[in-house]
């Protein structure tokens, strides 16, 4: 078994395992992901709040100004990131392209079509 064949076999097995996951488990995984994203968002905002509070206690006025300015820059960047791009929605991008494409959804799922294609 060469490396390429081995890699292909591993990929096939991993794909099969993923397809074995039931709908309820997929839904639970999705909920967990949503919770994790929300937690990440909250922790980022909390971090900015802490940094601003720290800036109020920093030594000299110049140091306070510097910490506050850096924190605000970070906050502005986070806001821009979230609103312009945000977390990657790769599956969604594929989904939109797939829907806009002329090829019907059935063509992607009909196992008879796959069988027919293979026989051509």
């Amino acid at each position: 078994m060469n490396e390429l064949h081995f890699g292909g076999r591993v990929r096939e097995l991993l794909d099969r395992r993923l397809e074995d996951i039931g709908a309820d488990r997929l839904a639970r995984l999705r909920q967990a992901r949503e919770r994790a994203l929300l937690a990440r968002r909250r922790s980022a905002v909390t971090g900015i709040g802490h940094a601003l509070l720290l800036s109020a206690h920093a030594g000299t006025p110049r140091a306070r100004l510097a910490v506050a300015a850096c924190t605000l820059l970070l906050a502005a960047w986070l806001v821009a990131w979230w609103h312009v791009g945000g977390p990657l929605d790769e599956a969604g991008e594929v989904e939109t392209a797939l829907l806009i494409d002329d090829l019907p959804v059935e063509a992607l799922l009909d196992s008879g079509f796959q069988s027919w294609l293979a026989s051509r």
């Binding site: 905002v45 605000l72 906050a75």
Partner: peptide, 9 residues
């Protein structure tokens, strides 16, 4: 920051 936070949230 609060304004930005509200915007982000």
């Amino acid at each position: 920051a609060a304004t930005l936070w509200l915007g982000a949230a």
